[in-house]
Design a protein around this nucleic acid. Structure first.
Lengths: 193, 193
DNA sequence: TTGATTTTGTACTGAGCAATCCAAAACCTC
DNA sequence: GAGGTTTTGGATTGCTCAGTACAAAATCAA
């Protein structure tokens, strides 16, 4: 019927994700997106409604990927406390590289950069938070049934606490806190559960 | 000798701070700064080297103000644990208003928006972190001497932990977490000390 | 009052921005 | 192939950006 598309839309979203992740939403120009994806402006605007729409797609893709990794840990056979230790450990691995390339977590970055002035993005972030919260809460409740975590504690409160600890470690890493201190935060956090 | 300045430089920095705090560095245009300060472009560029320089001044001013408040709490007569509870409580008061005006904390916002690509700002943020860390650590050590906080714990690690909790609560608030959940995070954090 | 000096308002610069337009190219069905 | 349809590249639009140029205004010392 018509001329077929020469590129894979999903690959384009992946490439755009890399660009947005590295520089943030505002600081990534449509020109940057052309270079990152290898596409012309027309192709991008033909496939996606706007820079904002492409960002939304890239953010969703990031969440999909990252939550996949989180779920893999949470659904593993480890004791609940070890699962959480592993999740926090990943943050240190990622954030410990700040001095070199360091782009942090796109979700945290977007919470700060966009959430307050972009209701659509804020909605995506809220939904993603809820997903992570429920998964973490379920893992904690499972740990409580196993006796790995104190049953008297509120699993929901602990889940919020762990998510906050992750965000806090990411912010602190950007403020220049080093690996050793991050590991101290990890230990204190796990001990609190 | 010459025509005197018609405005107070410090008031201009304060006004610029409000603008940067509300919209962030990139999203605040020099035009916005003119409107916020009530000055013409020439006056701004005559008094400050650049938008970046004005931002640095505004950021320093914000830190000065905020750290004043923190120090007031830390130097009060409360037990150490209560001091920390009070500090975290302030975050909830500030972040609880996100739905309405919500601009969060300029330091956290700047850590995420600028630290990774602006070495000068990163340096300012690191210095500020160190200041807050030392003040908090001293308060915790004092609490340990009073018997309010377990002496076996590492005061430095606890200080890093509390700062991370603050950053994490701010990020979570932006992800849509409500007041009740934030209060749960506060309780869990204080219990961990 | 004069002259040196600084501040201020206005207009401007060149660059970069997101997004659009349009015609040529590419493909599928018939 | 031909006709219909979509993709693609390149030029372009209108706008906003940070920063500058310049002359008029304001002040003070003399």
């Amino acid at each position: 019927m018509a001329r077929p598309r020469k590129f894979d839309e999903e690959r384009a979203v992946d490439a755009a994700l890399e660009a947005f992740w590295t520089a943030g939403y505002e600081a990534t120009s449509t020109q940057d997106l052309c270079e990152a994806t290898g596409l012309g402006r027309s192709s991008i605007y033909n496939a996606f409604k706007s820079k904002h729409d492409l960002f939304r797609r890239a953010l969703l893709r990031y969440m999909e990927r990252k939550n996949g990794g989180i779920d893999a840990v949470l659904e593993s056979a480890m004791p609940a406390r070890e699962k959480i230790r592993a999740l926090l450990g990943v943050i240190i691995e990622e954030e410990g590289l700040y001095a070199e390339d360091g782009r942090g977590c796109l979700v945290v970055n977007t919470c700060i950069e966009l959430a307050s002035r972009d209701p659509e993005v804020a909605g995506v972030l809220e939904r993603d938070y809820r997903l992570r919260f429920e998964a973490l809460k379920a893992a904690i409740e499972s740990g409580q049934r196993d006796g790995d975590i104190d049953r008297a504690k509120d699993a929901g409160a602990l889940a919020h606490f762990v998510i906050a600890a992750i965000g806090g470690m990411r912010v602190s890493a950007r403020a220049g806190v080093g690996r050793q201190a991050l590991e101290g935060i990890l230990r204190t956090t796990v001990d609190a559960i």
